[in-house]
Design a protein around this nucleic acid. Structure first.
Lengths: 345, 345
DNA sequence: CCGGGTTGTATTAACGTTCGCCCTGAGACA
DNA sequence: TGTCTCAGGGCGAACGTTAATACAACCCGG
């Protein structure tokens, strides 16, 4: 048997029919009588025949494969996205081509080219830099179906995501409303050109008429639990006062809480901590995390629907549509009214 | 421009050379003089030409794609595996075809067939039931390169993994050595036909001459943090005494600790908890988790090497090789000497 | 008994590459 | 001048499939 298994030709030779008849029979063409079809099908089964998707793609000019590019998988929310997307695509008969850009723009570009060379029918991309999307826009301009997993208004590219600004604003607003005035921000995004959450943080301050203290803006070296821990170390050692921390994802927040535990800072009595993404690890942490929550399943559903919809448009892509879901704040145990705060009048 | 971009033919027409010459030039054949090559390459660039990997695969009979099948992505350790495998494959010029079986045997079989139809050059599989591997063995018998990510001795299939029995045995042994005699086991695997960890748990008891209490064997409904929480609820409400819990992954263990926190059970003073996998969330939990650790990068390295090695064997697969890495116990804050235990003599 | 449909099957040409082989022209050499 | 070599390049087939078309046999009505 040839290495990659039986071909139509092998089934044809076994049954005495032509390759074409076999192909039609296996695809249940009405032009093939039942008896012939059954004979061919049983021969195919006997040879363990599986249609060669590569050859099929060459002639049909579609691969039924979608490229999924994420930055990395440190953040559980991205793994949820990955699994959810994969399941939904599989249910629709699509295979997921998976890649991580490893938080590296060149790598992102390379992966896009790889998927393009493989003629993926479309791509779902979580871009590394939300503001630097030229390479993706170029794709779209060549009529390639792409959907971003972060909502960049006015980028001219389809996108489905939650509204990061609104989420960050809600989180910060909650802290402000509970009397906090010096709120640290631990945000790995803004230095990479993803300013949405910091924008929300600033907007909430503006709305409350509270000035942002620049010395409380901390740049972690990543977005894992450990980097959260060390970012907190940096913050504490800077010697500035603060009564709350907003971390831009749950992992960072959990690292912060671990730091507090080790250094006898009580959460939430001495310090309020708010995360982002509503991961399971935050929800079931010893000190359950106050966080920003959104419906991942709905986002991936909409994104998958959209990319398949774009693919279905044979004659040029429709105008891009940006969908931003409104996130919710979930107040749990890691945040409380500021100790020093007087009751509001 | 045709939907899927320029072809060799387009470059040929633009430059006046034949398709063949263009193909050779783009692949830097020594038969093409420099000037010709440069002219062709710049024309290709101008047309934004990217070789069609589908057509290439059809003639070369290799796709340079590897299928990766995981059970799900709830467990962070599997997401680490996924990312690590993807990075290593990408570095070697391979694309990752990704699928989750969603803890469902039929789905696993279906995904294997999908990848086979797509002519993935090989597969890396984290099987759902470690004991039910006929479908995978059949693959291998058809000379299909497969490497399992769990080590099943004598299955006749290549595998790279850590030694789950040894890990579970070390974890349980640690608890026994620190005076615990009634150690609950929260294990989602054994009921699914993955008995390795329970075997290790029993072996450690045997070695210590301590009887296993069957009423302390709990079956969570999954392996997430939340299911750990509810498994603990079940265990506590069963009314049996125990001074330690061994959970078969960190997520379950974290759920248990959350339960303890909510119900005023002190960890480790009242109860020792041991996890498995050494995830970041356990390492940086408020109560840092005692757990079983192993080198994921090394496992994925060996697995990727092995599958590429199998692919390189054109003339039939070599005998299967099973590699099992020895895991280490990491004692941290969630476990301590049993309160009731007398000092050992 | 012939034209026209219907039924079942075969033939041919794609899809975009790569590979093996052949062709042409120019220079070297006897 | 005739032959050989070699550089530069083209032609045709193949990979496994599908789609369009062709063909052969049969049936039916007139």
């Amino acid at each position: 048997m040839p290495k990659s298994g039986a071909r139509l030709k092998d089934v044809a030779e076994l049954t005495g029919f032509s390759v074409n008849t076999v192909s039609l029979a296996l695809r249940d063409s009405p032009r093939i009588p039942d008896e012939t079809r059954d004979r061919i099908k049983s021969a195919a089964e006997q040879l363990n025949y599986l249609p060669n998707q590569v050859a099929k793609s060459l002639v049909s000019r579609e691969t039924r494969a979608i490229g999924l590019i994420l930055t990395d998988m440190q953040n559980p929310i991205l793994t949820n996205v990955a699994q959810s997307v994969e399941r939904k695509l599989a249910a629709r008969g699509y295979t997921t081509l998976f890649a991580t850009s490893n938080n590296n723009q060149e790598e992102e570009v390379r992966m896009i080219d790889t998927f393009r060379a493989r003629r993926a029918d479309g791509m779902l991309i979580f871009p590394f830099r939300h503001g630097d999307l030229d390479h993706i826009r170029r794709l779209r301009n060549h009529n390639y179906p792409v959907v971003l997993l972060v909502g960049e208004q006015g980028a001219g590219i389809d996108a489905v995501s939650m509204d990061e600004r609104a989420g960050a604003s809600k989180a910060t607003g909650h802290l402000l409303a509970t009397g906090h005035r010096r709120i640290a921000l631990i945000d790995g995004g803004s230095s990479l050109g993803n300013p949405e959450k910091m924008d929300g943080y600033r907007a909430a301050h503006r709305a409350a008429g509270v000035a942002v203290c620049d010395e409380l803006l901390i740049n972690p070296t990543g977005h894992s639990v450990e980097t959260g821990y060390w970012a907190m170390d940096l913050l504490v050692k800077s010697g500035h006062d603060f009564t709350a921390v907003f971390a831009t994802n749950d992992s960072l927040a959990l690292g912060i809480i671990r730091y507090c535990k080790k250094h006898a800072i009580r959460v939430p009595e001495d310090l309020s901590v708010v995360g982002f993404d509503n991961t399971e690890f935050g929800a079931f942490a010893e000190t359950a995390l106050t966080t920003v929550s959104y419906d991942v399943e709905r986002i991936t559903s909409l994104a998958v629907d959209r990319v398949l919809d774009l693919i279905a448009h044979k004659t040029g892509l429709p105008d891009p549509r940006i969908i931003q879901l409104e996130p919710d704040l979930l107040v749990r145990e890691s945040s409380a009214r500021a100790a020093s705060a007087k009751e509001l009048p």
